[in-house]
Design a binder for these strands. Structure first.
Lengths: 259, 259
DNA sequence: ACACTTAGTATTGTATTATAATACAGTTTA
DNA sequence: TAAACTGTATTATAATACAATACTAAGTGT
């Protein structure tokens, strides 16, 4: 065994726990069922280590085991954790009733997202018409620069910060129409900065118009965004601006977390 | 230190990981922000142990730390885990578009739940009018006997099994109208067994009528349920039976997982 | 403003516990 | 029918998690 490059080798760091969590987190959108050897491959752990940790997680109920195939899957405990999170986030609690209301009014798909590193993560989703599965589940991460929510959150930062982020942050090509031109993205964000909301088109899904407005703390720092997806077949940017924007902006502004 | 009652003391069980998970899972609906000492109290771990594990989980990004109060909260990683779970569950993937459709048609609150030990857990929720926060988030657990979904899932088991469960499983008093009479519950379930759906009233929320239908595998074993909540002010059991039941039952029957 | 309690943090020597290696047993592939 | 691959079980070793304890900071009550 080569000496691992573990800098944080203080006595307050439990390496075993890290390995266990590595296994929990190896399951993902495209890795939803894994056998032991696959886990070994994906995590880089020793076979015997993987064996012990998987076994433990199975006994604790975090991984379901298919006795036929001997492969593992995330269990409902994964969902229970989401429940704990959602209760701990008072922004979610504040926003929930208003988003339900908004979803009712507009009869469109409504989301709330929070910034997470260079991404945004969807924390509330209320689909209102047939969309991709990915677009209907919470916990999804998308590069902030790709999403109207991410852009409108960024738009509340200093202009210097915005420029830096637009330059450095990752960007992913989702559709043929995904803007990969960082200049255009900067322009879009600066526009959002002026107007107080962000409009995008066909960035992540081919036939979708998106409207987003920022949620800010009392001090003015952006902590999330509400966003509405509209089918581009039946909507135009102009119509969205007239009919949807006011509702989104008003709802977002009404959400001001106590602290 | 007394010799712990750890039966499963085989070499394939990593006790450290268990302790770490114990900390992750101590956060819940009513424990959403905890300091170190509180964690010590709630988990029963040694102070120094809690210190190490909390520290590790914080460094790994699973716990957010408020530098002011030095208290910890579940991080967005908790949500990311839900995302992994949802992708791994093909029942969820199958059901999602149909539930969106159903939510559209009925304009009522639609849920999908799965059995989990003696509870059910909500895995999809689509609120359509103002409800309690608890009723709008996934991952929530409710005793199976309390919920129409739980009952309708049970109703597809053998009558012997039903009787046993109705006798033994836990029951929680949510409202003044929550049925604590196990005889009445049995009757309700047997009725559901005949009719193929379950109707309840004011069991968990004071002004709510619930309609549930089972989702079964090809072999006929119940693996989940769809359920609709109606405000009792505007609905009666009869109206629900006429207008909602057919839609719910049809949707539930249309969901048959491949294997 | 005072001691006083409670909270979080840092350090260390020890042995308990996680460890890697390896052997074994089923399954699928050629 | 062998070969290559899975998952499972066992063991001796030392590395790592451990509890104790001391320290510091922040509240609490008188």
């Amino acid at each position: 065994m080569k000496k691992t490059e573990n800098q944080r080798q203080d006595t307050l760091y439990v390496a075993s726990l890290e390995k266990g969590m590595r296994i929990l987190s190896v399951f993902s959108e495209d890795r939803s069922e894994l056998g032991l050897s696959e886990i070994v491959r994906e995590t880089g752990l020793e076979k015997s280590a993987a064996q012990r940790f998987v076994n433990t997680l199975h006994q604790l109920g975090y991984l379901d085991k298919n006795p036929e195939t001997r492969r593992y899957r995330p269990s409902l405990k994964y969902l229970e954790m989401a429940y704990s999170y959602l209760w701990s986030d008072n922004l979610v609690q504040l926003a929930m009733p208003r988003l339900i209301e908004l979803s009712n009014q507009t009869q469109q798909t409504i989301n709330m997202a929070k910034p997470l590193e260079t991404d945004i993560m969807y924390v509330i989703r209320m689909p209102n018409y047939r969309t991709s599965f990915a677009a209907s589940v919470i916990g999804r991460r998308v590069p902030a620069l790709n999403a109207s929510s991410g852009r409108v959150i960024l738009s509340r930062q200093s202009e210097a910060m915005i420029r830096a982020c637009v330059q450095d942050w990752p960007l992913k090509k989702y559709t043929g129409k995904t803007t990969m031109d960082r200049g255009a993205i900067l322009e879009n964000i600066l526009m959002a900065r002026e107007k107080g909301y962000c409009l995008t088109q066909k960035e992540i899904l081919p036939d979708e118009i998106n409207v987003a407005a920022p949620i800010c703390s009392i001090e003015g720092t952006p902590i999330g965004a509400i966003h509405c997806s509209l089918p581009a077949i039946r909507w135009t940017m102009e119509k969205a601006e007239q009919e949807i924007v006011p509702l989104i902006v008003e709802t977002a502004q009404a959400i001001v977390p106590s602290r």
